[in-house]
Design a protein around this nucleic acid. Structure first.
Lengths: 221, 221
DNA sequence: GAGTTTGGGTGACATTGTCACTGAAGATCT
DNA sequence: AGATCTTCAGTGACAATGTCACCCAAACTC
């Protein structure tokens, strides 16, 4: 699949003058990652701005003992500010981005980024807004982890992962990584949910039987 | 005390042309907060960029059940990007900034901010770098809270709060707020540290007796 | 000196996380 | 189709951390 004009895709670029967009198209390159591959990480730090054209990237942190917590996801149409932060602050961080689907991204080198940020209000606001959203995302993660009860958080996450659907394809370990907890803890809480007829389970799959009750639980606190 | 030229104070403004700085000085206003007062919060959201000229602001989050966690501190010379994030993203957040000392801040209205960000590379980089540092700060908080042991975290925080000194003036409750835990947990861990001759305590005060041992504990993990 | 407020200690319990182990579902191979 | 292997889930025992209620003492105020 060829991408004719990726600048249509992003709020920060779609309204720029044609000449500016043409310049961007020639300055940027397109990269692809297959599902499951690492897009960035502590030892794999890109030095440019990433726009996600297509797909989804899961950004998470891992502990030294092997646990993991999902921080947020980058969806198509968003920029990946963690790469930008790394580029600008020149500090290491231990977050990792993994392609959750096949991914197509636009990579803008720093000089082009700098020029665009200087010259285009819309673009600069787009980047600032992206940063702001991530700060707020991380504030939510802190709030969640520091103060939240694990059953409430799991209910919330099940509903979020399901979306419109009633079924989630995920292992207990994957759910544990969403929340930064242990697999056994997820097994116990899901078992309790099953006893209360909130969910049904089979290996690698969870059906949400009583979404309203899960919602009520998710909102308690 | 009068501030003749606050633009000297900040990396993002100190190297700007004289004419630009003069414009900033006339566009910005100076605000003061006394120790203990709220600088910003969920119901007190400024709509401008804050530079901290003097003093220190503690930024924290609170839970509905009354617990609190310190996210980071803003020191003199830094900008306060949470206010900027709120301004740009137009989303509520439940973090609060409280003046830990008497505080003098420079408030730059959004139009002046926008113009400066457009026209001055140094300023824009200063703001991006500020954002990046906060993202990384919050990543550290998540890592700490999600994966860290409470005794290790307390040892770290005691050393950090003490700096060069051997004594900390803080209640157990204040230390609990630093880490997002319960006062009783801090009392127990400090009791254990005291038994191991790492610290000595009296009411509202903790002396670090064996800094090397505390450092060793802080780095274990 | 008495009374009040604030800070700290503690016991009992609940929740969450760790570790080791076991069992079963599902995949693969013959 | 059966055997074997891998992966996922369940569980018990225990540790770490957080909650709640209560008590006591240090410090302050009158």
């Amino acid at each position: 699949m060829t991408i004719t004009d990726w600048t249509e895709r992003f709020q920060g670029t779609s309204r720029l003058p044609r000449s500016v967009r043409d310049r961007l198209v020639s300055a940027a390159r397109i990269v692809r990652f297959s599902k499951g591959s690492q897009v960035f990480g502590p030892d794999n730090v890109p030095d440019s701005l990433f726009f996600l054209y297509e797909g989804r990237i899961r950004v998470s942190q891992s502990s030294e003992s092997g646990r993991e917590i999902v921080l947020y996801r980058v969806e198509a149409g968003e920029s990946c500010v963690l790469t930008t932060a790394c580029m600008l602050a020149e500090e290491a961080y231990n977050a990792e981005g993994v392609a959750e689907t096949d991914v197509t991204a636009i990579v803008l080198p720093k000089p082009a980024f700098d020029r665009l940020a200087a010259e285009e209000d819309a673009f600069r606001n787009f980047v600032f807004a992206a940063y702001s959203r991530r700060l707020i995302d991380l504030l939510r993660v802190v709030d969640d982890v520091a103060f939240g009860r694990i059953d409430v958080r799991l209910a919330e996450r099940l509903l979020s992962l399901a979306g419109d659907k009633a079924e989630i394809l995920a292992t207990h370990q994957q759910l544990a990584s969403e929340l930064g907890t242990a697999r056994e803890v997820v097994s116990r809480v899901l078992h309790d949910f099953q006893k209360r007829d909130l969910v049904a389970q089979s290996r690698g799959q969870i059906s949400l039987i009583d979404k309203p009750a899960l919602r009520a639980l998710a909102q308690s606190d």
